[in-house]
């Protein structure tokens, strides 16, 4: 098993931390993992993306241009990465702020209304975990017990009280997945 993922959105939407939680959880599950961020001006409010690879085998290139899954959180990232999903692959996106929806017919496309749902729950910072939930429902590459360990590892201890809320958000994401185009 090798899952090559791109997560992309605005800086501040939790793109890098979502990737980090995935990578830590994979590592806890004894998988090979790599987490390669875009770094630099993006961190200060522009677009931000991270390539996460989870595999049973040794990982070769940590930087990629074709992905099994793209998790897209804004229009710029949709424009940039829709065509980077491998044929037969998966695109999950948050429809909030998307004006030009994806049109490809050779990949599976799902919406997860992470932003809207997180506001409904009263904490905008949970939107990335809701998106992650949608992904894990479709591709259960991480077992729930290891997701918890991943959260414990990737969050500083002072934030550990937030772990139950994050786990709940993942469950919410699994429930609000909307299929747009399914292969």
């Amino acid at each position: 098993m090798t899952e090559e993922i791109i997560i992309a959105g605005f800086g501040g939407q939790g793109v890098l931390s979502m990737g980090k939680i995935l990578a830590y959880s994979g590592a806890m599950q004894n998988k090979e993992v790599s987490w390669m961020p875009s770094y630099g001006p993006e961190m200060r409010g522009g677009t931000s993306n991270v390539t996460v690879i989870i595999s049973d085998e040794r990982i070769n290139s940590p930087t990629l241009n074709q992905f099994d899954t793209a998790i897209i959180l804004n229009q710029q990232s949709m424009d940039k990465f829709e065509n980077s999903v491998k044929p037969g692959g998966l695109l999950i996106y948050d429809p909030n702020g998307i004006s030009a929806h994806p049109t490809r017919k050779d990949i599976s496309i799902y919406q997860v209304a992470g932003t809207d749902k997180s506001l409904e729950l009263g904490n905008a910072r949970l939107s990335n975990m809701i998106m992650l939930g949608g992904f894990l429902k479709l591709k259960p590459v991480i077992n729930p017990e290891f997701l918890r360990k991943g959260l414990e590892k990737s969050l500083p201890e002072r934030h550990h009280k937030l772990i139950p809320d994050n786990e709940k958000a993942v469950e919410v994401g699994k429930e609000i997945l909307v299929p747009i185009h399914v292969l």
Binding site: K20, V33, W35, M36, Y39
Partner: peptide, 10 residues
């Protein structure tokens, strides 16, 4: 280089 400096691995 920046890739190996910035990437996270085990």
């Amino acid at each position: 280089d920046g890739v190996i400096g910035q990437v996270m691995e085990k």
